[in-house]
């Protein structure tokens, strides 16, 4: 019989370890915000092979942590460090520019093992640092107002050795807010990344923003939101403090606008967007006349009754 053949084939085509690792990585990387540990537990149980699991975990946790901009508490009560590509000094080392410390992290456990002071070459010049720290102070004020549980950081990603006006440099603002409430079957995260390029020649600052929101509700079901938006803006180069104020105003404006557009999308959902999938009521605005269908020439009757002829 064919079914036996299939069983036979399946047992013959055993997956190689590399294939298993690839599959395990796919599951780990597709974990919703804040849920990679739960996914890891299930993946581990399914694989039943510690070596394969370990390899997959080692390869996927770092990218997951960085793309989800996860926040790890520093051991010496000096705050949090964000895991991002911008703060990455080495595979397991992440810079916290605010405290000029480098956190050495365990990606899979998502904890900080130890901290060390940042080396001089890891930090920006005094000139750039003035812009960076002014920006940091302003963005912290904004984040504490706008996000009940937001974490933010400002990195210098280009031109960190620039020591005087006359050269270009780039700052990146990262904002990450996550909420995990498994007891309410709900998790979510807000991530925004703002690239801020100071262009000396044209005396302007170019701003590029990327905001990403995810939410997962899973009480007796599985429903997920995945929303993204990109935007651009510009302003003039000013003193560090004035630049920080106008840049944070730009960020606040775009983020507030994006949130409002998300709310509008949600409001439009029930009566417009969702309607293209399935209407609440039939085109006839009355429940379907099932009681009439038992008649002999049923389709014709219904068509006549509803006047929709086909």
């Amino acid at each position: 019989m064919l079914e036996e053949d299939e069983d036979f084939l399946e047992s013959e085509t055993q997956l190689t370890d590399d294939q298993k690792i690839e599959i395990a990585k796919w599951f780990l990387l597709n974990a919703p915000a804040g849920e990679i540990q739960y996914v890891a537990k299930d993946v581990r149980a399914i694989l039943k092979d510690e070596n394969v699991y370990k390899k997959a975990a080692e390869e996927s946790f770092p990218s997951y942590n960085k793309s989800h901009l996860i926040c790890i508490e520093l051991p010496n009560r000096s705050g949090d460090v964000l895991i991002t590509t911008f703060s990455e000094v080495d595979k397991d080392e992440y810079l916290d520019p605010r405290t000029a410390q480098v956190a050495i992290v365990d990606h899979v456990k998502q904890v900080c093992k130890e901290v060390r002071p940042a080396r001089d070459e890891e930090l920006p010049s005094a000139f750039v640092e003035e812009y960076r720290s002014a920006m940091d102070a302003e963005i912290m004020k904004y984040v504490s107002e706008a996000y009940p549980k937001g974490v933010c950081s400002v990195y210098c990603t280009k031109g960190k050795d620039v020591e005087e006006p006359g050269f270009d440099f780039e700052l990146v603002v990262v904002i990450s807010a996550a909420r995990h409430s498994p007891q309410n079957f709900c998790n979510g995260s807000w991530r925004s990344i703002w690239n801020i390029e100071f262009k000396d020649e044209i005396q302007s600052v170019e701003v590029r923003g990327m905001m990403q929101v995810g939410a997962h509700y899973f009480e007796e079901g599985n429903v997920q939101l995945d929303a993204k938006h990109e935007c651009k803006d510009t302003t003039l180069i000013q003193s560090p403090d004035d630049s920080a104020i106008s840049l944070v105003n730009i960020i606040r404006h775009h983020e507030t606008e994006y949130l409002a557009s998300l709310q509008t999308s949600y409001l439009k959902l029930p009566d417009t967007t969702f309607k293209d999938l399935r209407r609440k009521l039939p085109v006839t605005r009355t429940l379907f006349p099932w009681h009439n269908t038992a008649q002999f020439s049923l389709t014709r009757d219904i068509e006549k009754e509803l006047g929709i002829g086909k």
């Binding site: 009940p148 996550a178 709900c186």
Partner: peptide
């Protein structure tokens, strides 16, 4: 529509209240 999508919207508003 109401419960599931509503919950994801609630989550968005918890993350960054309007």
């Amino acid at each position: 529509d109401q419960v599931y999508f509503g919950k994801t919207n609630e989550m968005v508003c918890t993350l960054r209240p309007p």
